[in-house]
Design a protein around this nucleic acid. Structure first.
Lengths: 218, 218
DNA sequence: ACCCTTAAACTAGCGGTGTAAGTTTTGCCG
DNA sequence: CGGCAAAACTTACACCGCTAGTTTAAGGGT
């Protein structure tokens, strides 16, 4: 078949369909041939629009990351900004959990991830954190959010009571976790985030300060 | 070739070789044929010892998790125990970073991961944390450790200054992160862990208490 | 109005993957 | 010592990412 009157594929259409496919069938079920079939097309046609499969995945990941809101760093104090950002970040990832293992490996060349890192780092430095500390804080929060979206604690447990009862006495009711999965994960996230921010606030009082009153000695 | 005088393969030998191969070439470079070649064998022979490739990966992941030390929960206060565990957990994962994306998806049916979860949960409950809180704390710490081992913040940046300078003003020196990768990641982990534990200590003072003096209400 | 370049689909095919099926020979147990 | 299970093998299937070359339509230049 030759070139059609109207192009059947667009980068945008490919990315949207890929996102839906990954959401529906997971990363292992996502192949270029399968994606092409979903688009009514023949596989290699995708390579007219993307150079590699990873480039498609990067575009999907970038779209997901693009939904994260970092506007708090422009308008609120750093603790509130971090909290808003972390929750927004988490919501963006849990909306498409299957892409997280790919996405979590690093910002790489994805512009949205870089813009996010830039906004967080800039906001923290503006709030008076030393640059090295700002990097650490951004990384630590990213660890926590990515980990929470990736390894849903509850989802990992198998629904087979027998498996646990025998050998792991404290986990006797672990299979019930699957029922409360969302609430367990959200509760753990809320607790951990609050604890993190609490600890950072204490650290801030000890070592950092507003930009206009730079600390006198190193 | 028929059955040999002495079996050439053992589950243990397969797991060890698989671990080394994954360490050396990463998850994408790990295939059953490649592993078999490394063992001087023909590919399908592995299926005499493991049912699927994932079962091999589970065994590798379980061995890695088995190196995590949870003994602190038996001998130290809960804060020190959590700290020791988190660092041990992190060391175990960063020793084999390439398996982490697979491992981080959940404990599943891997006994070492389940034993670890059991020890942490039990230790926290013994220390006076309400069961639901103990679950949340274990999960939160796991998020943080898995996230830090998975998405090394520094490793994710590309070594191309131009890429950042143009569009992300605050990340102008991001490419330098690659040079200090280990120190950035460890610093971020140390900061985040301390903050988490600080926040949990405050929460403990507010809501929990030793088992022998159970709170009177709610 | 025509040519020519480029775009966007196609088909064919390469080397690789996980794994199922069936074969062969050995070691061990009754 | 007969027979069965174990552990290697070969063959093969369906799928994978991706390359190469083909075909035809779209669109810009003269």
């Amino acid at each position: 078949m030759p070139r059609p009157r109207q192009p059947r594929l667009t980068r945008q259409l490919i990315v949207d369909t890929a996102t839906a496919l990954i959401d529906a069938e997971g990363l292992p079920g996502f192949s270029t041939r399968r994606l092409a079939a979903e688009l009514g097309v023949r596989g290699p046609s995708l390579y007219n629009h993307f150079a590699t499969k990873d480039e498609i995945l990067d575009a999907v990941a970038d779209t997901v990351t693009g939904a994260v809101d970092t506007s708090g760093f422009a308008s609120r104090d750093w603790v509130a900004a971090l909290r808003d950002w972390a929750w927004s970040y988490r919501r963006a990832l849990t909306a498409h959990p299957n892409i997280v293992p790919y996405l979590a490996q690093g910002p790489g060349r994805r512009p949205a991830a870089l813009a996010m890192a830039d906004a967080v780092y800039g906001g923290l430095v503006r709030a008076g954190w030393p640059p090295a500390r700002a990097t650490h804080i951004g990384a630590a929060l990213r660890y926590f959010v990515a980990g929470s979206a990736l390894g849903s604690f509850a989802r990992g447990f198998v629904e087979d009571p027998e498996l646990y009862a025998a050998h792991y006495p404290h986990l006797r009711d672990a299979h019930r976790l699957a029922e409360h999965q969302q609430s367990v994960d959200e509760g753990a996230f809320a607790l951990g985030l609050d604890a993190l921010l609490h600890g950072l606030t204490a650290e801030y009082a000890r070592t950092a300060g507003p930009v206009e009153s730079a600390r006198p000695s190193g």
